[in-house]
Amino acid sequence: MKAQISSFILHPLFFTPKIMSLSFDLSTPKQKQELVKSFFYHLFVGGFCLVMVYPLLWLFSSSLKPTDEIWRTVMQLIPSSITFDNYVNGWAGFGNISFTTFYQNSLIYTVLATLITVFFSGMVAYGFSRVNFIGRKFWFACMITTLMLPVQVVIIPQYIMFSNLKWLNTLYPLLLPRFGGQAFFIFMIMQFVRGIPKELDEAAEIDGCGKVGIFFRIILPLIQPALVTCAIFSFYWTWEDFLTPLIYLNSPKLYTVSLALRSFADPSANTDWGAIFAMSALSLVPVFIIFIFFQRYLVQGISTTGLKG
């Protein structure tokens, strides 16, 4: 009995009434066996979870410590006293520009970039994987090659180009390239599209659907798990990207959260580590919200794909 109870305590949804009502029904041996199995499952996965979320716990705990304690009790997970000063100091930002501005900028940049990237990546991926045209392999190879050149050596020519276009200090250099989709996502979606039986396309074609119709009506709904994954990645990668904003945005009023975070630390002078940890912790919140929100659609994919059989 002890085992079963702790299995529920370990269970993340322990408090939901639905589970409570289901849980104590141990009438048949099979259910009992199922419960034991479930217990070990949660014990293993849950235990593993702890290792995985350790950095988050550490980060949040450090962000609550008084500044002069952070380095002296750096491995101590539970702060001896709790303060929210770090959050207040950190949020105040620099000069008269607070994190409210940085969050606004980041959200605008990230949401726009993600929407653009996901849609156009899906479109291009469909073209590459479902339409047969001359030069397809060549262009695909070109696309993959663009992924292989380290960004460090293209920064400067790219900067000169955008600077000549007078696009510095605007969102154009950050957003316009996204209208081509991103090679990583295009390739990823391609792999998913290729997993969809072509008979579906053919059936739709017989029903009078063109390539465009097939893309919107058949492919897009079916690659939902892939699109959702793209959205999560794109959001996170854009959110944490500091290099592009650093190079192209000069005015601090346009800085993003990731860039602001990096403006806190100076190895050679006074650094408010408490504020860094506090703002780092806060900066994870939008990413988490997006993840929790979108990952539900990962499940839904199953029922949609299930229809095809």
Binding site: F94, I155, I156, Y159, I160, S163, F242, L243, L246, I247, P252, L259, R262, S263, F264, A265, D266, P267, S268
Partner: peptide
Amino acid sequence: FAGFADHLTKMTTQAAG
């Protein structure tokens, strides 16, 4: 403004541009 390493990256880029 930027952190130390970022400042150098940024200024180098701007010098080239």
